[in-house]
Design a protein around this nucleic acid. Sequence first.
RNA 1: GGGCGAUUAGCUCAGCCGGUUAGAGCGCCUGUUUUACACACAGGAUGUCGGGGGUUCGAAUCCCUCAUCGCCCACCA
Length: 966
Amino acid sequence: MSIAEQLPKQYDPQDAQARWYPFWVDRGYFQADPGRDAPPYTIVIPPPNVTGALHLGHALNNTLQDVLIRWRRMQGYDTLWMPGTDHAGIATQAVVEKRLFTEEHKTRHDIGREALVSRIWAWKHEYEARILGQLRLMGCSCDWSRTRFTLDDICARAVRTTFFRLFQEGKIFRGKRLVNWDTQLRTAVADDEIEYKETDGHLWTIRYPVTGSDSESLHVSTTRPETMLGDTAVAVHPDDERYKHLIGKTVTLPLLGREIPVIGDAILVDPKFGTGCVKVTPAHDPNDYQTGLRNHLPQINLLNPDGTYNENAGPYAGLDRREVRKRVVADLEAQGLLVKTEPYTNRVGYSDRSKTPIEPYLSDQWFVRMADDPDGSPGFAQQAMDAVTSGRLKIHPERYAKSYLDWLGEKRDWCISRQLWWGHRIPIWHCATCSEADLKHAFGDRPDVFWSPDESGSGWLVCSETDLAPDALGPSHTLEQDPDVLDTWFSSALWPHSTLGWPEQTPELAKYYPTSVLSTARDIITLWVARMVIFGQFNMGDVPFKDVYIHSVIQDGDGKRMSKSLGNGVDPVDIIETYGADALRFTLASSATETQDLRMPVERVTDDQGRIATRKAPGQPITFIPADEAKDLPKEQLVNTSKKFEEGRTFPNKFWNAARFALMNLEGYTPGPVRPEELAVEDRWILSLLRRAAADATTQLDAFRFADLAKGLRDFTWNEFCDWYVEFIKARLRDEGTRPAAQRVLATVLDGLCRLLHPVMPFVTESVWQALGGVAKARGLPEPAEASESVCIAAWPSYPDSWDDPEAEYDIAQWQEKVAALRNLRAERDVPKNAKIEPILVAQGRAAEALARGASYIQSLVGAGSVTVAPSADRPGESAVTVLADAEIILPLAGLIDPKAELAKLSKAKGDLEKQLGGIRSKLRNASFVERAPAEVVEQQRTRLAELEAQHAALVSRMAELGGGS
RNA sequence: GGGCGAUUAGCUCAGCCGGUUAGAGCGCCUGUUUUACACACAGGAUGUCGGGGGUUCGAAUCCCUCAUCGCCCACCA
């Protein structure tokens, strides 16, 4: 059996995936080689969180990165796609803690730091394996030998060194800050890890008596009455006539009896809101905190880490915050100080992780200084802004540069400490009792140890690149390591250079930094991209990448964000199993336009009996169960897909079958040169289009226009190569004389298609490449050359300008137009399928010459007995007529023409023409148009007018012949 | 509240540095087992380009405004 006959009629994606991925990996195509003499092209993967598996958003992002990497690899670059995963601090700890609680009813405090961390590692191993497996299934050509994890030793080393350098240069400092405290997890959470919910509560109004006055008092309203225990002032607007005389006096804080000042503060107080008086609790409210700083108010912390109140709450000490609220309200009421209680809906912040209300909480934290230096030299934020404004770093689409610059413009210090156990431990050791002499004695000659006085307490803070033993200062002093870990973004921010081995001066670092492109989602432009720029410039003295590509966000069909728990999430593996990896990739690449959001209508997968596809757990095989049983399942067990991927499935199949056709017709292929005169018009035409398709593809990839790339290649493959070229050459392939040249062109075009389509559809192209290699190992024009062993490493095509052939394109366009018109006539006039037609094409000049050259092709493509091309012809009464811009088509159809119906059709065509003519005529009658529009536009309209008038005249004369009026 | 973006065929989207008759895929209708492909082929229908106003010889495209939707940021005593 020939190779072609062994190929199934339908492309089998699973077979190709199973075959070629190991093939590529075994041959080491994905491995970068810093020793190779080729320019570098590098992408670091945005490391997915090990929290869970990848979804369609990741699939989109990684498809695009793989397209770029495969393209550049083919262009001859030494490509490195650096893979890895992110430990994702709080997110991962939270899922593991949650599981610990639901399965064993234990908190992390029950099992301790070491045990929890080891459980998280186990989780990490499981999900890392799944994530990397998903990427492999998608066909991602990462250099797996370099896979990194943000918490591995290589990354840890970079974290240590960076922290040390920052500390040494005074870029890291310790400070008090109001953090969002999660009392259940006992940790601070980031602003973006808070979910606000509209919650029904109350607004309580409390009376604060003015000290030394029997009658006067101020009324303040609050949604959190318990915090009044920590009030250190009452603020009014400085211009408020009702209260301004009280500024500088004091009021007596109810329940505790402290005297607190009345202050004027125009920023905090809106005199029109509520009573116009605001209680100020600097330690427990962000605005009040700022107010406290402005007015030098004391900060009274009321909270213990577990959510109970501390000794500052006086009689309420030891009670949970919720209990304190109840008692404070009851006590105020009992003392007649509660003015009123109103129902009130406000937004309460809940921790994303524990789903409990967040408490603003004053605590010691570590910060990286973002602001400019006191001497005015630019700080980290400014440096990162400069990278973009100077053009060293480009963000695509450009509009996202604005969010980057706006956010950095605030130059807010970056809080890098987290009260967690999963992460890089802060490399600071505190010694409360020692003197600087002790430190000098112990570490004096060590360049990797640096200390500074603890400004917030007594003793010294010692930063070290390597762990310090508790007794490193001798038996009389204790060194205690800071219990906190670093914000997960601290290690992510180092990713582009830590993964290359920094601070070691590795060959990789020298060659691959700065990397080429970063592709990511817009919601982490600030959290991640900006910080990579900051640390890249700090450690490496250069931006971490030259281009940042921001892809769109995938939503479901209703515009809702996809998520597994909402039941609208789509697992790329489900798509791959249903449609194939190439289908997934092609559809995603086709969808990658410059939009912000991308809708992906989602539907359940069912079998032909209407049963619902489910998976017991992600990664498990699909089982189908009756619909009514599926109702009660958790949504994350349902398998979703989207019709959008149908398009991605049909295209590889179309290409596959075009290849089968080619292979079947390459029997007896012999490599050899093709002389220009051996090329038929259609050969010159397809080569001209192939050249343009390749040039366009290159341009689009350069500009990250993935959708245009996918569409352009699809159109060329399907609408030009399959629909026309293959049809054109069928006859020549049957003729022994013309067969060899036709085969050589066919092999060349198929070879080019494999290359051009490979970045987007690696699997089907490799299948075709290998099969093609079986019959035509040497191919290409004008001289054949031996093809490489894999399309993965074949050269990206760039064809000579001499292939550009406007004459051939003109000819083919002429043929195509006439074929389309004749097919339309056949269909519209109900010409029997097997009837041989005898059309006459009336044309003059260049058009006539082109049609004469193509007569035999037109004949076979429209099922004609003969095709006549003539400068003029009589129109038989029983014939259908179509009038085109440069030709008239006469189709004699004895016995098939109903003059009335024919007239009606012509009349409709005439009506359309007249509408267009009317538009153009009125335009040309308009003096301002003729005067003001550019000359070529006016000329264009005149030409068009002449064409349409000629067509109109022909129609009118035909109608007269048929006996119809004009 | 500030910002970004969207609104074009039944659906998902191109087009938008103004200029022939606004396109694609899917879906729909009619026909076809034409020896690569029914995941196909041939033909066809479908749009006051969200509403209103303006600029211009000319607006889907530029400006203003309103409406609806989405996202980001800030914030709600």
